[in-house]
Amino acid sequence: MSTTTEFLVSERLARRNSRRLAERLIEAVLFAAAATSIFVTVGIVYILVTESIVFFRHVSLIDFLTDTQWTPLFDDAHFGIMVLLSGTAVSSIVALGIAIPLGTTIAIYLSEFASARMREIAKPILELLSGMPTVVFGYFALIFVTPLLQRVIPDLSGFNLLSAGLVMGIMIVPIISSISEDAMRAVPMALREGSYAMGATRLQTALQIVIPAAVSGIASAYILGIARAVGETMILSIAAGMQPNLTWDPREPAATITAFIVQVALGDLPHGSVGYQTIFAAGLTLMLFTLSFNILGFWLQRRYRERY
């Protein structure tokens, strides 16, 4: 009896070494998987920077930043990124003009006023809205929203930043509302109870107690929304046209940075030509913008975080 247990124990102890080796191996494999994400970032930076360096050998940085024309595929080539930036800025401003008020209102309503049941139903449906393929939103903006807007604004062109921006705004609403709502719901109940005890109404509590307490989360929701608007591609390349146009008028067609990349990728550009390198310079510009928004969001969250 005792010999069999001894035998079993020693056998198990003997197996322990090989098991330890297997454990080590598994841990190494898992770590390798985790490290892959670093290589993705390194790859993105490497590709964008090396191709852009080639681009900036042909085009001076000053021309890139100050020229008011963007005609990289013409014989008389100009490379003024301002042209594309204006399209990106106008469409993003239109989108955020819709998404921030709507998203914030929905967040306050769902977090402070709606019943739990209402929230359970509304949140997943809103999530479906942001999970829709963007190419479908582009179709919707071009075929449905633009003709609708043309009845109100007769001189609206068939491709325009306005309808693309509006549809993009609706798409961003769920991003802003769901992150803001999470931030508001993380505010401790005791703060609300204190406010109610002082005789405040629900709206007063929401606006004067909950929002200031959740401001860091709400700010990062906005920044995520901005980053999404700046990087959105398909809605703009379908509904805003792909014509580079330095404009601040949302009724006009204009290309954004992203739409330009799509336009070049659709054509047949030889690998290594200046036109080909242009999309990497445009991509680097886009990447720098989103990166700085990310850093800003990170900083805001640290700076204004309320701890309870």
Binding site: V40, I47, A227, I261, N294
Partner: peptide, 11 residues
């Protein structure tokens, strides 16, 4: 998670 999808296309 915040990198625009088109950048992945360029990569």
């Amino acid at each position: 998670a915040g990198v625009p999808s088109i950048i992945f296309g360029l990569l």
